[in-house]
């Protein structure tokens, strides 16, 4: 078997690139979630976890850049596909009556929009937590800096910020509902017998991700006493 440099521009290859980068992003979402959940243990374990990550040094930088690249590829490929699709369908306004018969869901229709929203939110999110000074004024609780923990808690004590986060997670949920199911189809690890099962499982998975992530700001806003 020889390895042929295959044509990345072919439609199916493009889609599979989106799928595989999507899968990488999902694994990031899971790892990130695992770390975030330390917040329920209080400031110390949470900050230790964050510091632990810092100790990877150069490797962390590489991982971050790799993740950035994955994001970029995911977005670039999708954009190219969407542009092609609009062109193929002859524009956005296609039929005088919009009356599809199939199983096309809200999640599916909104895919590019949930994606764009998530991307924009992500920049805010990074600005808020990753690029912020975790010993600065925003990390102070009761006059004392609680590091990243403080930063997070202070942010989410603001109901607008808290609910913005929840909305973003709802978008993530919608995005994953279609994304996870699509992954199986696009990679061809699918069988008609499992179509419905895969669809249900991807919904459950997406919902769990949303609940798990949203639990953090909601906990901070409504339950955590400081």
């Amino acid at each position: 078997m020889s390895f042929q440099i295959f044509d990345l521009s072919r439609s199916i290859t493009k889609k599979q690139t989106v799928a595989i980068t999507g899968l990488m992003l999902i694994s990031f979402v899971l790892v990130h979630l695992a770390g975030n959940l330390f917040i329920f243990d209080g400031p110390k374990p949470f900050n230790e976890y964050a510091e632990h990550l810092e100790r990877f040094g150069i490797f962390k930088k590489i991982a971050e850049w790799a993740l950035f690249l994955v994001f970029l590829i995911h977005i670039e490929r999708v954009t190219s596909l969407v542009v092609q699709n609009i062109r193929a369908a002859g524009g956005l306004k296609r039929y005088a009556v919009d009356n599809s018969r199939g199983p096309r869901s809200l999640a599916t229709r909104l895919m590019p929009f949930t994606g764009t929203f998530l991307f924009l939110y992500l920049i805010c999110h990074l600005y808020d937590f990753a690029w912020a000074n975790d010993q600065g004024i925003r990390s102070m609780i009761n006059g004392k800096s609680l590091g990243l923990y403080g930063l997070v808690v202070n942010s989410f004590k603001n109901p607008i910020h808290c609910w913005l986060y929840v909305v973003a997670m709802y978008c993530l949920c919608l995005h994953l509902t279609h994304g996870v199911e699509s992954f199986f189809q696009t990679f061809g690890i699918q069988d008609s017998r499992f179509t419905l099962l895969v669809r249900k499982l991807s919904r459950v998975f997406a919902l769990m991700i949303m609940i798990a992530y949203s639990s953090i700001p909601l906990y901070v806003l409504y339950i955590l006493k400081i």
């Binding site: 889609k15 092609q84 062109r87 193929a88 199939g102 895919m111 199911e181 699509s182 696009t186």
Partner: peptide, 15 residues
């Protein structure tokens, strides 16, 4: 030929 790309919406099967 200028066809679009499948985004797994399954409208085709329904039609």
């Amino acid at each position: 030929e200028g066809f679009g790309n499948c985004s797994n919406e399954y409208e085709c099967e329904a039609a």
